[in-house]
Design a protein around this nucleic acid. Structure first.
Length: 611
RNA sequence: GCACCCGUAGCUCAAAGGAUAGAGCGACUGACUUCGAAUCAGUAGGUUGGGGGUUCGAGUCCCUCCGGGUGCGCCA
């Protein structure tokens, strides 16, 4: 049987996509020789050849462990008599090296303990890397256009509630993921799905009518909405008669009482406006908004269809629910998918009612090929149930649905943030504090800047400071929010990367124009080679991040790049160097600046010119 | 009970089944008359939770145990 979540697992073990390898012209002929030689050695080989960079500082080259893999195959073959695989690997590597000879573009070809190492000529390739980056500019590392169209659903906020830092991880992750898909060459649709109806909204409306009638939101709308929501929750939880009273409002809702609907529309728009402001600050935009309220009725119709088709069981006559007994339908003895309730006993809709319809609507109306859901890990079983149900319904594209799960953000002591319980840190509070701190540091480091510029820099540093740590940790790690570390911008953090960009910019500003293309006529320093090697890798990193659904790859990449650029400018004088060296290093600096900027942009982080 | 996730330096985390497991923070020692010190150089810190297995090769894959987190019929 097929588990859907394995159908769309990221494909690991895929090296750099050939289309984006900056040295394919040189490596391809070598690969041809290797394959031909292996054939003549009677060793079967049909996989890709994986090249990784050689791990020796100051050298620039590619290595492959193919000798080991070939030796292992050789040993597995009957009658080969091969016992000592490392020894055989070295023999094969030597044979391959002999066959490869002295190919164009490489300065050395060696067999080392079973590995084959090719060193490229840095003087030649240094120029290629730099020229490519400067010619491509902000499109450097953009992938070739793919035929696949991808939708990324993320954020999915509830109206009438807080937007807290627990929600931040979702937006930042989803936004970065969408950026990456788009840049990798996929046509990308950013979708947001608003929870604008349900018990939380009914409670809110009840509380408003009862205690806040005719009030208008004061100041921070989202906060004001949250305060009423907290009050409503508390009242309903503490006093059963209050809950009863609030629930009565459902009747008016179901009857589409015009007055109530009008109030809902007005209050809902307050919430939406407030949250849209947050998106604007974060630099997020969406191509399409779905609303729970608009998919509720079609969802119910879909459930009727499921009942008719004997997929869902209608137990309402006995006071039960409408449910899909997945394990039973699939004939599974072991509990796997369990039961998905798709309609309440009173006939009202649930999350699943709407999600089933919406899943199909996405493909039908947007003509997408893949549908990605950025939703926290606690909904993994639920997502599996939805996708499986779609599959049972015969909706083949269910195989192209993928749940991008991420762990939640807790408060210290494993306290889960909950707007219901009011245990939240509001995004706005965090941002304001972060901006304040960043502003203080700018003031201290660069008092000469205009006030306007200081404010701009502080905002981009603060936002980067908040975003980067959420992207630089793998999605399956639980995050703990505490003020101290959230506002600590030292070390492996966004300001360090932004600062590297600023320094590059500063050198270039002093130099004036970027010189014309030039090859280095001197022996490159190790720091330069390391930097060039890293620069050449952004294209493959973008592809890998998209393939693995991991902005983390880029977060790691851009930090490494920043560190290597910093190392370069500390060791290698640029402006004071002789003409050829100065010109090449200026171009290298410009290439680093561009690549830092492009990489940060994919993470949704701005690269300031000064700070 | 059935599943999923986590466990790597004192702390927070990296690490394409591949070459010597790397960063940051914290600690200690140094570097601003030098392209900007939000920086850099150096020192210390590890039997990758324990035990089996697969493999030429395991932090990475499989099994098992321990410790922590999460989910599992009318919440979203």
């Amino acid at each position: 049987m097929s588990f859907l979540l394995t159908a769309r697992q990221p494909c690991y073990n895929r090296p750099c996509p050939p289309e984006k390898r900056m040295f394919k012209e040189e490596l391809n002929p070598v690969e041809t020789i290797i394959l031909r030689t292996l054939k003549s050695l009677k060793i079967e080989w049909d996989a890709e050849i994986v090249w990784s960079s050689t791990p020796f500082s100051g050298e620039w080259g590619f290595g492959t462990a193919i000798g080991f893999q070939a030796a292992a195959k050789d040993a597995a073959a009957k009658d080969s008599g091969v016992k000592n695989i490392p020894q055989r690997a070295q023999e094969i590597a030597q044979a391959l090296v002999k066959a490869i000879g002295a190919p164009a573009g490489f300065v050395s070809v060696e067999a080392v303990r079973g590995y084959i190492n090719l060193s490229i000529d840095p003087q030649v390739y240094a120029r290629r890397v730099v020229d490519t980056i400067l010619a491509d500019g902000e499109n450097f590392a953009r992938g070739d256009a793919k035929t696949e169209k991808v939708m990324v659903e993320y954020s999915a906020p509830n109206t009438h509630k807080a937007f807290h830092v627990g929600h931040l991880r979702n937006v930042i992750l989803g936004g970065a993921m969408a950026n990456i898909f788009e840049f990798a060459g996929y046509e990308t649709v950013r979708a947001n799905y608003w929870g604008d109806i349900g018990w939380h909204v009914i409670k809110w409306l009840w509380c408003y009518l009862r205690f806040h009638k005719d009030e208008e939101p004061q100041g921070d709308r989202t906060r004001w909405m949250q305060e009423i929501y907290s009050q409503a929750t508390q009242l309903v939880e503490d006093q059963p008669e209050m809950e009863e009273e609030a629930r009565k409002l459902y009747k008016r809702w179901d009857a589409r009482d015009p007055e109530l609907i009008a109030l809902w529309e007005r209050t809902r728009s307050w919430s939406i406006e407030g949250i849209m402001q947050i998106y604007e600050v974060l630099g997020e935009h969406f191509d399409v908004f779905f609303f729970e309220s608009e998919v509720e009725e079609p969802g119910k119709k879909l459930v009727e269809e499921l009942i008719t088709r004997n997929i869902a069981v209608d137990d309402r006559p006995n006071g039960g629910t409408v449910a899909i007994k997945l394990d039973e339908l699939l004939g599974l003895d072991k509990e796997t998918f369990r039961v998905l309730v798709v309609l309440r006993s009173d006939g009202s809709s649930l999350y699943a009612t709407k999600d089933l319809h919406l899943a199909i609507k996405k493909f039908d109306e947007w003509n997408i090929d893949r549908s990605i859901y950025v939703i926290d890990v606690r909904q993994s079983l639920y997502m599996k149930q939805i996708f499986k149900t779609l599959e049972i319904m015969g909706f083949k594209q269910s195989l192209n649905c993928f749940h991008l799960a991420y762990e939640i953000v807790n408060l210290p002591g494993d306290v889960t943030m909950s707007s219901r319980e009011g245990t939240v840190v509001m995004f706005d509070d965090l941002l304001q504090e972060a901006v304040k701190r960043a502003r203080d540091i700018v003031q201290q480091k660069n008092p000469g800047l205009s006030e306007d510029l200081k404010a701009k820099v502080a905002l981009s540093v603060a936002l980067g400071g908040l975003k980067y740590p959420l992207l630089a940790v793998d999605t399956n790690k639980v995050a703990t929010f505490d003020w101290e570390s959230a506002l600590n911008f030292e070390g492996q953090a966004s300001p360090y990367i932004q600062y590297a960009h600023v320094r590059a910019n500063s050198i270039l500003a002093r130099a004036g124009d970027i010189p014309a293309p030039v090859s280095p006529a001197y022996t490159l320093e190790a720091a330069e080679i390391t930097l060039l090697d890293r620069l050449s890798r952004l294209p493959e990193t973008v592809q890998r991040a998209a393939q693995d659904y991991k902005p983390l790859h880029l977060a790691n990449y851009v930090y490494d790049l920043a560190r290597e650029f910093t190392n370069f400018y500390q060791r290698c004088p640029v402006l004071r160097a002789d003409e050829n060296m100065r010109n090449f290093r200026l171009r290298l600096t410009a290439a680093a600046r561009q690549t830092l900027k492009n990489s940060l942009a994919l993470l949704g982080i701005q690269a300031p010119d000064v700070m």
